[in-house]
């Protein structure tokens, strides 16, 4: 099969996540056409109904828009893109802080370390 999927999460959501991360990484740019449902299904080795749900969900999130008779395109929606970027940044920071806390680094120490790290890094 084209892809491996986790057991506990719906497959359509896993594909949504995958496409979002591709958009954020810039692999798919605003205005890019997404493959047709059938093509995507063939590439991923999943049921086309699943891909249909994926696209519907992406549309609901305003990340893509479907143009009648032309297909589905990555939305040129700066607001949403920005939001998505912020969201991802926050997610990463949250993960970072969580990990630091787990190894016993306090918030003050953390800020100090970051400043020192960034200062030296320049």
């Amino acid at each position: 099969m084209g892809e491996e999927f986790q057991a506990s999460k719906p497959i359509y959501m896993q594909i949504v996540d995958k496409i979002i991360s591709e958009i954020v990484q810039g692999k798919r740019r605003p205005g890019d056409k997404l493959p047709s449902v059938r093509e995507m299904a063939v590439n991923m080795g999943v049921n086309p109904n699943t891909i249909q749900r994926t696209y519907t969900e992406l549309e609901r999130l305003k990340l893509v828009e479907s143009r009648r008779g032309q297909g589905t395109f990555v939305a040129a929606n700066e607001e949403v893109m920005e939001e998505l970027g912020t969201e991802m940044q926050e997610e990463i920071i949250e993960l970072f802080i969580q990990k630091m806390e787990e190894i016993g680094v306090s918030k003050d120490q953390l800020i100090g370390m970051l400043q020192r790290y960034l200062g030296e890094g320049r």
Partner: peptide, 15 residues
């Protein structure tokens, strides 16, 4: 339904 299994019960078909 396969997706309902995952959504509602967190199970893959095999599980």
């Amino acid at each position: 339904k396969v997706e309902s299994l995952r959504e509602e019960r967190g199970l893959s078909v095999l599980q």
